[in-house]
């Protein structure tokens, strides 16, 4: 059976959104809260994926929402509102990063040649993973730590594609790169995360978590 994972979508309702946007443009500004409510989490997540700092991500999320409000007239219906909002957030986060560039150290993995093929380093057996494990804070924390350890260009692709469920084309457009680059980086991000998480979680999902100490597999 095909293993489709690309078709999930948010709860966006384009028709309703279009009406809301039109009414906001006509002066019913308070409807903006209703418009952005489904996307507050994803805007924060996109900012956090790039900045890896809660306070900075919150500031950037606020700036992005403000910018979206101020420029709502520039939104064109051919794009999805969620994509447009994410694009603004990513741009804001990159600008924020540039301003504070001197203070930020990126993981060495960012300097790797992405054209080179990535070879999995670990072959631990991972079969069933009950999603209920996500109820456990330590599981979410370990996953978050693994994601945070990726280089920015892999992390942002992974967040947009696999956490925000944007299409490859939308992800490419937002980041201003080719769809081929999105696919290459996404492959690496997924394999790196698998390598990083497999030793600790493999075969051990329902019992107590025990991450093995050691260096990252890349």
């Amino acid at each position: 059976m095909p293993e489709e994972v690309s078709s999930r979508e948010s709860s966006a309702k384009p028709f309703q959104e279009e009406t809301l946007i039109q009414r906001i443009r006509n002066g019913e500004h308070e409807l903006f809260y209703e418009l952005i409510q489904p996307y507050e989490r994803r805007v924060y997540a996109a900012a956090f994926a790039i900045l890896r700092n809660e306070a900075d991500a919150e500031d950037v999320a606020q700036e992005a929402m403000l910018k979206a409000f101020k420029h709502i007239r520039q939104f064109r219906a051919e794009a999805r509102f969620s994509t447009w909002l994410t694009q603004i957030t990513v741009n804001e986060a990159h600008m924020w990063r540039r301003k504070q560039h001197a203070n930020v150290m990126e993981p060495i993995v960012d300097r790797e040649d992405e054209e080179g093929h990535y070879t999995p380093r670990d072959f631990a057996d991972w079969r069933e993973i009950p999603l209920e494990t996500l109820e456990r804070k330590e599981v979410r924390q370990k996953l978050g730590e693994a994601l945070a350890s990726l280089g920015e260009k892999y992390r942002e692709i992974f967040v947009l594609r696999d956490m925000q469920h944007l299409s490859i084309e939308e992800t490419a457009k937002i980041l201003g790169i080719s769809t081929a680059s999105v696919k290459t980086r996404l492959l690496r991000a997924r394999l790196m995360l698998r390598d990083l998480l497999a030793p600790g979680f493999g075969g051990n999902w329902s019992s107590k978590l025990s991450f093995e100490k050691g260096t990252k597999p890349w």
Binding site: L131, D162, R190, L191, R194
Partner: peptide, 9 residues
Amino acid sequence: GTRNVVELF
């Protein structure tokens, strides 16, 4: 493992 990564995140 890769599928689990995608599902969990």
